[in-house]
Design a protein around this nucleic acid. Structure first.
Length: 882
RNA sequence: GGGAGCUUAGCUCAGCUGGUUUAGAGCACCUGCCUUACAAGCAGGGGGUCAUGAGUUCGAAUCUCUUAGCUCCCACCA
């Protein structure tokens, strides 16, 4: 069969993916084999594939495919996350386009729209992952809002409530006015923003009358002054001590508020005088509690001002700020303003400025759970890769505050709490059960008297169960229940691959849930990927337009090319700077592999041909090199140094297999395309092994070539074929061979230098060590007519002499030698070795070195010394020859 | 404000518990080649006072501290 010179991924990738699916190679059910399991970090159901997913899922696929090839029963569970806030926002926007307001329809109607949307768009990202080659067990595809997953969430809620680990309370929460919901502390992103600090005049009040004296107060939020309930100074502040107890008037609305004293206030910031706005600032709220001050909330849920504000009612908070500044200015209450850089919280999901808001929410007590979850990492049961994240993890776990889990949304699991007409609450898995509980409080209650809490739980409250619930959805909330067969087999999972930004959101909480319900860790290793950034180190974002479309990239470079490009430059925990030339390198490598195959497949295996000595030696060498490579790769894998594994294989394939091995055994021009059977069989075995080693990284091309290199049956696949055995490895022989390579490189350099064409055969004389068995290869690769061992330099006119190791090689060059140039080159080399010798000598003449350094180190130095000396002697001799 | 980490060739990074020829790789670069597998290729080559200053040590890219620059995490001084 004639193969094209350029590898075309588009004709192979689809073909083999379908083939794999058809034969259910990705599917796993429990059996007697050791297992390897991974759960995917479920991408948002609204999501489309971006470079972060590409990296993350390529890493998972590499680990998963490798485990599968090792004969483990391998299970990679895929699925998506319902992502309450993001999805709800999308559906709301979609409805708005249709002219429907969320407030105009019922909860059930809204959810119908949302599910319809999910059915239509929800699987895009999973389909895209198939393009990448992800070997997920698609028969297990899950969704965090599937009925049994939701059941698990509710059971968990009820269990924790009954245990006293979930409570309801009025707290200052992070309110996202755009999403219309509370969010957890972790979902608030702080960014530095240039703001203004406004100095406002609060005039003293004399029985409600404005005095001419005032107190200056600095604030960044002048629109909240209507919610002020006091001014506050530090009790030790002499400037203000006499004023405590006096009253001032709020500008514009002239409401009288007291001056109080509290240690919280720092004297040297601003004016040392703070306005207290309990409803709109967490610290003020605390102060308000201490001083029994009222709470005046002037904001609506959407961030507009309400009637309590008295002025600017209905205006958005930021519009109100602009307007009130003008009003303050006009009223003479704005003293000055200055630039001020401060941190402001933004919603992770909607990017709206977070508003601290006092409200009734549900919380999970984290202190006990966090302590347990910390232990798993501290004692090494859960390994973080790289382990620098242990510190970060510890810090968070030690300071974690309670987790606000209620969200004022409809898309998600509705909180299983039911309110009695009197305000009491019962928690139960259904309205019927709730009624039974409620009747213990009030026996007259009947169906319909109870009102379910309208909120849903935080999405992470379902995804923290993911590694458990995908296998046994009945286990969460029921620690006493026996695990089902699936959970018993697959749990704990082996590796989790995720980004460090959800270490606390997700990873830590999965460990908590794992401990709570299974008494065990959910996974053994957490591989934390870096972030994919652009070439300039910027985050990829839609607004910058620096985020390439992965599908488009795969169209250009092939899935294998893109996978390779990503894997080559990723090390755990380090960000990767995306550069398309890396994909190009990946594509080029595919082409290299393809063409190596073209070469090999053009040969005719001939039983009657005798194996040449050069081929025999090449086979011997490369077989040993491959054994060593397997061990090295194994070691690197155990350390999760995936990019280094790939680089190792890249070099072995390209440099050693193609540039050396194949070039040596390649049938010479006059031999036609016939090759002896022994060499041919070994070559195919090597190729087979290399394809196996490369398969986890580049699944498509390796399958394509593996299928083509021998007769295969329907149902065969490199994925499930046993790894060919490899032989022993003799280090000394490998070293001999690398000296042979050095020799040939020197000869090639000489040719280039002297412009000696490849066809001109040269004579080589050797003084020193050079194994006889390698002479043939030297002749072939160096273009030599003879190799001869000598004890002295040959007397053949101009002789070029050079060193490899401590062996001296001579090549007669007739009239081609420029003696002057040669002499200066030799002198330079001599100089180098003399300097080197001086350094070694200095060490060896140092008494303390000899006394304190370990014996083997001293021995190495002695060896260096004698090597350097023999080299110097050889160089001197060469100079004499000239 | 607190904590963690990074700084090695033009770029991206290895260099693990200090000692293996006075620092390694890939890419990029330079030179010569369309040599019948591959120009997405072949052969050869150049390039770094290991951010800074000091210390520990017989010996430091590697350990300690200083300074500078970057990154991330945590923290709501208005």
């Amino acid at each position: 069969m004639e193969l094209p010179a350029i590898y075309d991924p588009s004709v192979t990738e689809n073909k083999w993916y379908s083939y794999w699916l058809k034969h259910r190679f990705f599917h796993s059910t429990p059996d007697k084999r050791p297992k390897y399991s991974v759960v995917i970090p479920p991408p948002n159901v609204t999501g489309v594939l971006h470079m972060g997913h590409m990296l993350n899922n390529t890493i998972q696929d590499v680990l998963v495919r490798r485990a599968r090839m090792q004969g483990k029963n391998t299970c990679w569970v895929p699925g998506t996350d319902h992502a309450s806030i993001a999805t709800e926002a999308k559906v709301v926007a979609l409805l708005r386009d249709k002219g429907i307001q969320k407030t105009d329809i019922t909860r059930d109607e809204f959810l119908k729209h949302a599910w319809a949307w999910k059915e239509k768009h929800g699987n895009i990202i999973l389909e895209q992952l198939k393009r990448l080659g992800a070997s997920c067990d698609w028969e297990r595809t899950n969704f965090t809002m599937n009925p049994d997953m939701s059941r698990a969430v509710l059971d968990t809620f009820i269990y924790l409530y009954n245990k006293g680990l979930i409570y309801r309370g009025v707290r200052m929460v992070n309110w996202d006015p755009q999403g219309g919901t509370a969010v957890s502390d972790e979902e608030v992103i702080h960014r530095e923003v240039s703001e203004k600090l406004y100095y406002l005049k609060y005039y003293f009040s004399h029985n409600g009358q404005r005095s001419t004296q005032y107190l200056s107060v600095a604030t960044t939020r002048p629109e909240t002054i209507m919610a002020d309930v006091a001014l506050c100074v530090n009790p030790g502040d002499e400037r203000y001590a006499h004023l405590v107890g006096e009253k001032v008037l709020i500008p514009l609305i002239n409401k009288e508020i007291p001056i109080i004293a509290d240690d919280y206030v720092t004297m040297d910031f601003g004016t040392g005088c703070l306005k207290i706005t309990p409803a709109h600032d967490p610290n003020d709220y605390e102060i308000g509690l201490r001083h029994k001050l009222p709470v005046i909330d002037i904001l609506n849920l959407d961030g507009t001002l309400n009637g309590e504000a008295r002025i600017l009612v209905g205006e958005d908070r930021f519009v109100a700020r602009k307007k009130i500044l003008i009003m303050l200015e006009e009223a003479g209450c704005l003293e000055k303003e200055e630039s001020y850089v401060t941190q402001i919280g933004f919603s992770e999901r909607t990017d709206a400025v977070i508003e601290p808001r006092l409200s009734q929410q549900w919380f999970v007590k984290l202190s006990i759970l966090a302590k347990k979850a910390l232990e798993y990492v501290e004692d090494g049961q859960v390994r973080l890769i790289p382990d620098k994240y242990r510190n970060t993890y510890r810090h968070w776990m030690e300071t974690a505050r309670d987790w606000c889990i209620s969200r004022q949304l409809w898309w998600g699991q509705q909180i299983p709490a039911y309110y009695l007409p009197g305000g009491e609450v019962v928690v139960a898995s259904s309205e019927e059960e709730a009624l039974v509980l409620a009747r213990k409080i009030d026996s007259t209650l009947k169906a319909g008297d109870l009102k379910q809490d309208p909120d849903v739980v935080d999405t992470w409250f379902s995804s923290w169960l993911w590694p458990i619930s995908v296998f046994d959805p009945e286990k969460p909330g029921h620690p006493e229940k026996e695990p089902n067969q699936e959970l018993a087999y697959y749990y704990p999972t082996d590796d989790l691959v995720t980004a460090p930004d959800i270490l606390f959101f997700w990873v830590a909480r999965m460990i908590m849930a794992g401990d709570l319900f299974c008494g065990q860790k959910p996974f053994s290793n957490v591989y934390l990927t870096g972030m994919v950034r652009d070439k300039m180190g910027r985050k990829m974002s839609k607004s910058l337009g620096n985020s390439p479309d992965p599908i488009e990239l795969m169209n250009i470079y092939g899935a294998d090319g893109v996978r390779m490009g990503l894997m080559l430059c990723t090390s755990a925990g380090n960000d990767i700077l995306f550069d398309e030339t890396q994909m190009e390198q990946g594509r080029n490598f595919c082409n290299k592999i393809w063409n190596a195959f073209r070469l090999v497949s053009s040969w005719q295996r001939d039983e009657h041909l005798e194996q040449e000595e050069t081929s025999r030696q090449a086979v011997r060498w490369f077989g040993q090199l491959l054994s060593a490579t397997r061990d090295e790769a194994e070691d690197l894998f155990s350390k999760y140094r995936l990019s280094e594994v790939l680089m190792l294989l890249y070099k072995r394939f390209w440099d050693d297999f193609c540039s050396w091995y194949l070039e040596i055994i390649k049938p010479a021009g006059n031999a036609g395309k016939r090759i002896d059977a022994a060499t041919y069989d070994s070559t195919l075995a090597f190729f087979d092994l290399l394809l196996h080693l490369l398969h986890p990284f580049m699944p498509f091309i390796t399958e394509e070539l593996w299928q083509n290199m021998a007769k295969r049956k329907e149902g065969d696949s490199i994925m499930v074929s046993p790894l060919p055995a490899s032989g022993p490895c003799n280090q000394a022989e490998l070293e001999d061979f690398s000296r042979l390579q050095e020799l040939i490189v020197s000869i090639r350099g000489l040719r280039q230098n002297r412009q000696i064409p490849g066809k001109t055969l040269l004579k080589l004389y050797v003084k020193g060590q050079f194994p006889q068995i390698l002479h043939g290869i030297a002749r072939r690769m160096g273009g030599l007519e003879s190799v001869q061992m000598v004890t002295e330099a040959p007397q053949e006119g101009n002789v070029y002499a050079f060193l490899v190791g401590t062996t001296v090689f001579f090549i007669p060059l007739w009239n081609l030698l420029d003696k002057e140039e040669e002499r200066s080159k030799l002198n330079a080399e001599l100089e180098y070795h003399r300097k080197f010798l001086a350094i070694v000598d200095k060490k060896l003449s140092n008494e303390s070195f000899l006394q304190r350094a370990p014996a083997d180190v001293v021995a190495i130095e002695r060896k260096k010394r004698s090597d350097a000396m023999s080299r110097i002697a050889a160089l001197k001799q060469q100079l004499d020859l000239l």
